[in-house]
């Protein structure tokens, strides 16, 4: 009976390990990283809310900044450090490797070591232990099982937590976290393909009523040659127009001037005539 229970625990641990490794090693998309990072940042003006789950102006600004930094290729730890420098350590929701992080590693390891130690110690006691009554063992065995289960569960949870922290993690895991709330960036980044393309993401932001964030994403891209620059210029002009920016007219005129045969040029000319 006891062997069967230990076998089940071992199989459970092995299963969790396999799942953890599979989840942790898949490269996250930019959308997933933005979702995850926004979920790790505390909304500084809210109570118990993450940046992902808040619609306050500061949270929206922070989401736009996370989106910009992810698009710029900065790592998760660089982005979180950037926010800590400005808002203090408490802006990050989960403990880091420098805070409580090491404890998260040490506790399951310690619990597992205790459990293994106890088993070995009891085995060494051999026959004397077997002669004791079943009543004497019922309770201790339950505690032992609880400690082992905690060790296995927390041991499996740690790599999942840290793989999400440092690599972005899977969409399923991210949606289980608080980031699943209705964050603007979360709701406005419908596909991974759009997220890897800042212009596409900006267009989605614009469609979702966030012209300011869209403008920020394409600001530096409008002068690029090729298709990216063309689309960035168009999105920039439309975003400026939506944000009542006086520069919108000149940006849209420039788009029409430089790309007179673009499929959107006719529509932009109409917009300019009506404004």
């Amino acid at each position: 009976m006891r062997r069967a229970a230990l076998l089940v625990l071992a199989l459970l641990a092995a299963g969790l390990l396999v799942v953890t490794v599979m989840v942790g090693h898949r490269a996250p998309t930019d959308t997933e990283r933005v979702q995850h990072l926004s979920g790790e940042l505390r909304c500084p003006t809210c109570v118990s809310q993450t940046v992902a789950g808040s619609d306050t102006p500061v949270a929206e600004g922070m989401r736009a900044e996370v989106t910009r930094q992810v698009a710029a290729g900065r790592s998760d730890s660089q982005i979180l450090s950037w926010f800590k420098q400005r808002y203090g350590e408490s802006i990050v929701l989960l403990p880091t490797r420098h805070g409580l992080g090491p404890l998260l590693w040490a506790v399951p390891g310690g619990a597992l070591a205790i459990g293994v130690g106890v088993i070995l110690w009891r085995r060494r006691r051999g026959a004397g232990w077997r002669q004791e009554t079943a009543t004497e063992h019922a309770l201790p065995n339950a505690w032992l099982a609880a400690v082992l289960a905690l060790a296995v569960a927390s041991g499996a949870a740690v790599p999942v937590v840290f793989s999400l922290r440092h690599h972005g993690g899977a969409a399923d895991a991210a949606s289980a976290a608080p980031t699943a709330a209705t964050g603007a960036v979360t709701s406005s980044s419908p596909s991974p393909a759009a997220a890897t393309d800042p212009v596409g993401t900006a267009f989605d932001l614009l469609k979702n009523g966030q012209p300011a964030a869209a403008e920020a994403l394409v600001q530096g891209l409008a002068d690029r040659p090729g298709k990216t620059g063309t689309l960035a210029l168009l999105v920039l002009g439309l975003a400026q127009r939506a944000a009542q920016d006086p520069a919108a007219t000149e940006t849209l005129r420039r788009f029409v001037r430089e790309h007179p045969n673009h499929p959107a040029a006719a529509q932009v000319r109409r917009l300019l005539r009506n404004s």
Partner: peptide, 28 residues
């Protein structure tokens, strides 16, 4: 055995408590 198990569980519970406190309500 009961004492040993309680001693082993205390750090786990303390850690869980600390993480929960940090994760809730604290504002900048």
């Amino acid at each position: 055995w009961r004492r040993l198990a309680i001693v082993a569980l205390v750090p786990v519970l303390v850690l869980v408590g600390v993480v929960l406190v940090r994760a809730s309500g604290e504002s900048v």
